[in-house]
Each structure stands twice: as structure tokens, then as C-alpha cells.
């Protein structure tokens, strides 16, 4: 079993208006086998947490720590983090010109495993995973995300999750912009990855909709750069009924 531990994390970004503090002391521990939903209104810092764990250069960690089984994640480069077992399904996957999905997936798999996958089983695995996510076979020869629709991009993020088999998956608003059918397909993919075992999941979402398909063990409500409330799946139900207004009123009252 592995543990991803975030302790008192403070993160800022530098904008034209100056330095802006976004995360203000986040602490969170995720173990493999657990599914944590991170919910919160826009601008509360959910995506910043995801990008900071993955190592996006835009974010500056001012204090606090992130460790994976005791190893200092913040000291690792972006690719080292991925090889250590962290996976970020991006909110906005970018297009990569000149690189086919086939080439990209094989290169990533080779980098993560430290050796090239066995060609026959790998080709079969890719085909199966694509079919399960209802991705047409011709996408294998297309350039990474180039000309993909929003839904196609998200399905390809989950394809990578299933093929690269990380220890921890951070899904950054994977549900946003998906219609119900696509949401189901994507959720099934995440559930397959969870069912395989050995995966800790951080499911970042603005809406409760995806939680009908992916059942969280823990729910954390993010408000203004920190966790305002934590609980079990029942907290998600309450949010579905009440929305975030209660927290926002609190935040304004204390501000």
C-alpha cells in the first residue's frame, strides 16, 4: 500500500497584478484503494492542488510538503513524479503536433515502466482499452489530442490512466463538458482502474453528477484555498441539495 501525503501546503502564482496566494494550508492524506472527492466552487483552488501535485511550473510552493511513501515529491521533476506513480488527468489536455497516439502511449509506457512493453500484449491492451472507452481505432494514428472534441480528449485521458497504471490518479474536472453518455463511459473507465486495485484516486469536481457513477470514500469541500469540511459520501448528497452557498457565506463572514 502507498500513501500520498499533503501537509500544510501553501501555493501561490505570480500574475501581472503580483503574487496571489491560492492554497492556504491544505492537508490531505490519500492511500491506495481509497477514492477522495475534492469538491468546491470555482476559484477555490481545486485545480491548483492537482497541478501542484503534478509539478506544473506555473505554481510556486511557498511552504508545506507533498510526499509519496515518504519520498519528497516537490523535489522531483514533472516526469520523475509520473514515474514515481502519480498521474494527472488534465482538465484541458493539450494538442501535440507530429506525435501519434500510438507513439505517445508506447513512449510514455516505456518511460514509466523503465522498459519497452512487449509488443504483442501491448498492442492488444491498447486496442481493448480503446474499445472499452468507445474510442474509434483510427484515433491510434492521429496526433495526440489534435482536433479531438472535448469528450474525446477526456476519454483519451482515461485511456492513459488505464494503460499507465499509476499508484495515484488525480482527475482534474474530468467530468466537465461531458454529456451523460460520455460521462458514463469515462466513469466506467475510472471504475475499472479502481477495481484493478492498488489505485488511490483524487476526483476533483465542481458538480456532484459524476459521484453518481464513481463512489467516493471521502468527500472534501474546498473553499478559498483550504478544506472547509470533510466527510463521507453523505456530504456529497448534502452538497447536491444545498450547493456551495453555505460555505461561501461563511467565507465572506470571516473575511
Amino acid at each position: 500500500m502507498s500513501t500520498l501525503e499533503i501537509k500544510d501546503l501553501h501555493v501561490s502564482i505570480t500574475t501581472e497584478q503580483g503574487v496571489k496566494n491560492i492554497l492556504k494550508g491544505v492537508s490531505l492524506t490519500i492511500k491506495t484503494g481509497e477514492t477522495h472527492a475534492i469538491m468546491g466552487p470555482n476559484g477555490s483552488g481545486k485545480s491548483t492542488l492537482a497541478s501542484t501535485i503534478a509539478g506544473h511550473p506555473r505554481y510556486t510552493v511557498d511552504s508545506g510538503s507533498i510526499t509519496l511513501d515518504g519520498e519528497d515529491v516537490l523535489a522531483m521533476t514533472v516526469d520523475q513524479r509520473a514515474r514515481a506513480g502519480l498521474f494527472l488527468a488534465m482538465q484541458y489536455p493539450v494538442e501535440i503536433p507530429g506525435v501519434t497516439m500510438t507513439n505517445f502511449l508506447r513512449t510514455a509506457k516505456t518511460a514509466i515502466d523503465g522498459e519497452a512493453p512487449k509488443l504483442r500484449t501491448w498492442t492488444k491492451d491498447v486496442k481493448e482499452a480503446m474499445a472499452q472507452l468507445r474510442i474509434e481505432p483510427e484515433f491510434a494514428q492521429r496526433n495526440v489530442n489534435e482536433g479531438f472534441s472535448g469528450g474525446e480528449k477526456k476519454r483519451h485521458e482515461i485511456l492513459q490512466l488505464e494503460l499507465l497504471k499509476p499508484k495515484f490518479a488525480i482527475l482534474d474536472e474530468t467530468d466537465s463538458g461531458l454529456d451523460v453518455d460520455a460521462l458514463k463511459v469515462v466513469s466506467e473507465g475510472v471504475n475499472r482502474a479502481i477495481a484493478e486495485g492498488g489505485l488511490g484516486t483524487m476526483l476533483i469536481t465542481h458538480y456532484t453528477r459524476i459521484l453518481r457513477y464513481i463512489k467516493p470514500d471521502f468527500v472534501h469541500v474546498f473553499v478559498d484555498g483550504n478544506i472547509a469540511e470533510q466527510g463521507g459520501p453523505e456530504l456529497a448528497d448534502r452538497l447536491e441539495d444545498e450547493g456551495y452557498d453555505r460555505y461561501l457565506a461563511d467565507a465572506q463572514a470571516t473575511a
Binding site: 509520473a82 514515474r83 488534465m90 494538442e95 507530429g98 505517445f104 513512449t107 514509466i112
Partner: peptide, 22 residues
């Protein structure tokens, strides 16, 4: 783009070569 490829475990120099070669 570099971040995306690195986030999949691909080191920076390999990522650049991958893109240009392709």
C-alpha cells in the same frame, strides 16, 4: 505541451525529440 508529455513520465529531452522527429 512539454508539461503534458512530462506528466506522462517522458523526460524533457525525449519529449522534444519525440515532437520534432514525428
Amino acid at each position: 505541451q512539454l508539461f503534458y508529455l512530462q506528466a506522462r513520465g517522458i523526460p524533457e529531452d525525449v519529449a522534444r525529440r519525440l515532437v520534432v522527429r514525428g
